[in-house]
């Protein structure tokens, strides 16, 4: 391991500070974790869903383009969910399908079917923080919420858009995450994320995600129909809009296999 000598005093100072904070703020972290567990608890058991969605990508100068896709998701117990994305637009990638097994702390497993090549390719990379389809969303922003993905710290209560919210700090457990921390606003009533701030490796605010138009499915599961991600550094933004969403459509493991990729159209 390489140590940067001149940072050493800084490190030890930080470390001791961390220890002090830990002792005093034990409850803040416990509380954060408890809230995260409750959040996950309330969203268990939805099994699977299928959505039709659009991504609107905008540049700093407000040019925009739309990409359309279908998203199939399978709930996986005690691990990240499995997702299958089928691209409909732009035309030259129509039929391209992307399969993702997300994991909390391990790199995701990913495959892509290229219709023009008629082959399934596995992608081996550590790209969780990389952009999804050139958008402002990273893979890790879109994959399911898992308690193990982060360590937590409850910060404060705060009103957001008229809702009483918990404000929680989350630090990614994944080694190659592009973020140092996320600050999440969860409404107290339903434990739904309303706003998330993403901080980059230099600890400055990189992006803000806001959730809009929450709908209730199966009387239990809340889903936002619009996710709005703004990059503060590049001033680009992306909206992810769900046009249609159906739960418990009967999808199974076999619909999320490599073989299924080729069939998906």
């Amino acid at each position: 391991m390489i140590r940067i000598r001149s940072f050493k005093p800084l490190f030890s100072a930080l470390l001791s500070l961390l220890l002090v904070v830990q002792v005093q703020a034990q409850t803040a972290e416990e509380k954060g974790l408890a809230i995260a567990k409750e959040r996950k608890q309330r969203d268990l058991g939805w099994q699977d869903n299928q959505a039709e969605a659009s991504m609107i990508l905008r540049t700093a100068s407000r040019q925009e383009i739309e990409r359309r896709m279908r998203l199939l998701t399978l709930e996986v117990k005690d691990d990240g969910d499995k997702g299958l994305t089928i691209f409909d637009q732009p035309a030259d990638v129509k039929g391209t399908a992307f399969l993702n097994y997300s994991h909390a702390i391990e790199p995701d497993e990913q495959w892509m079917y290229l219709p023009a090549l008629k082959r399934v390719k596995r992608i081996a990379s550590k790209n969780k923080s990389g952009p999804f389809m050139g958008s402002e969303f990273a893979f890790e922003d879109l994959s399911s919420f898992e308690v193990e993905k982060f360590s937590y710290k409850y910060l404060r209560d705060e009103q957001y858009e008229g809702m009483d919210c918990f404000v929680i700090e989350q630090q990614p457990a994944y080694e190659h995450s592009g973020y140092t921390k996320l600050i999440t606003w969860l409404d107290k009533e339903h434990y739904r994320a309303q706003k998330v701030e993403f901080y980059d490796r230099k600890d400055s605010l990189l992006k803000t995600l806001t959730m809009h138009d929450y709908q209730l499915y199966l009387d239990k599961y809340w889903r936002p129909m619009k996710l709005s991600m703004k990059n503060h550094q590049t001033r680009k933004s992306t909206d992810l809009i769900t046009h249609e969403l159906q739960f418990r459509t009967g999808l199974s493991e076999s619909d999320f296999s490599q073989a299924a990729l080729k069939r998906a159209k």
């Binding site: 990508l57 540049t59 040019q63 925009e64 383009i65 691209f87 732009p90 030259d92 990638v93 391209t96 992307f98 990913q110 892509m112 290229l114 219709p115 023009a116 090549l117 390719k121 992608i123 990379s125 550590k126 790209n127 923080s129 990389g130 952009p131 999804f132 389809m133 050139g134 990273a138 190659h176 592009g178 590049t234």
Partner: peptide, 26 residues
């Protein structure tokens, strides 16, 4: 189509910060 799909594949595999925005527009 092949070119488009290669590019999509490649874009999907790049890590944080190393995207293609500096070479290809939106």
């Amino acid at each position: 189509e092949l070119a488009a799909q290669y590019l999509l594949l490649y874009e999907m595999s790049l890590p944080f910060g190393l995207d293609l925005n500096n070479q290809v527009n939106l």
